[in-house]
């Protein structure tokens, strides 16, 4: 993982150099959620198991954010999109691409974990994003 503090605990990790999102799968209905939580929002079952998803995904929708939204600490402009992962889970995520002409629905993307900003204590904060997959 890139050096620095994760933007929040329990969102992602890096295994043998390969980043993954930490999601949860319901033990009753099998549906997945991210971030992981103990209760299934789909069937209300009180039991999920933690799974790792990614790094490969497919871009479903995207847009460009030109001005920093409230609380955002990273650079602008940036792209925001919906990424479909294996197993029927879609997540909303920042995209590393800053040129919208290089994005399209259906684009293969891959997860990255990288520095986003430096916090008030001078520590680098890392977060997850998706970039166009290597051809």
């Amino acid at each position: 993982m890139a050096d620095g503090r994760p933007i929040a605990p329990g969102l992602f990790d890096v295994d043998a150099g390969e980043p993954r999102l930490i999601a949860a799968e319901c033990v009753a209905c099998g549906r997945r959620q991210f971030p992981a939580a103990a209760v299934c929002p789909y069937c209300a079952a009180d039991g999920t198991r933690e799974i790792r998803v990614g790094p490969a995904g497919r871009l479903e929708l995207y847009t460009m954010v030109l001005r920093a939204p409230p609380g955002y600490r990273g650079p602008v402009p940036y792209a925001l999109g919906i990424v479909a992962l294996d197993g029927g889970l879609s997540v909303v995520a920042r995209l590393t691409e800053t040129d919208a002409t290089r994005l399209r629905p259906g684009l293969p993307v891959e997860l990255v974990v990288e520095p986003l900003f430096t916090d008030d204590a001078g520590q680098r904060v890392v977060s997850y994003a998706f970039r166009a997959a290597a051809a």
Partner: peptide
């Protein structure tokens, strides 16, 4: 300005995921 909402946890704001008009844009797309 852009609506700030306590709906989003602070890490989502910091990560740039609290951009309300962007969600409208995704829906339009």
């Amino acid at each position: 300005g852009m609506i700030r909402s306590s709906f989003f946890e602070s890490w989502r704001e910091e990560a740039g995921l609290a951009a309300t008009p962007a969600y409208f844009a995704l829906r339009a797309q």
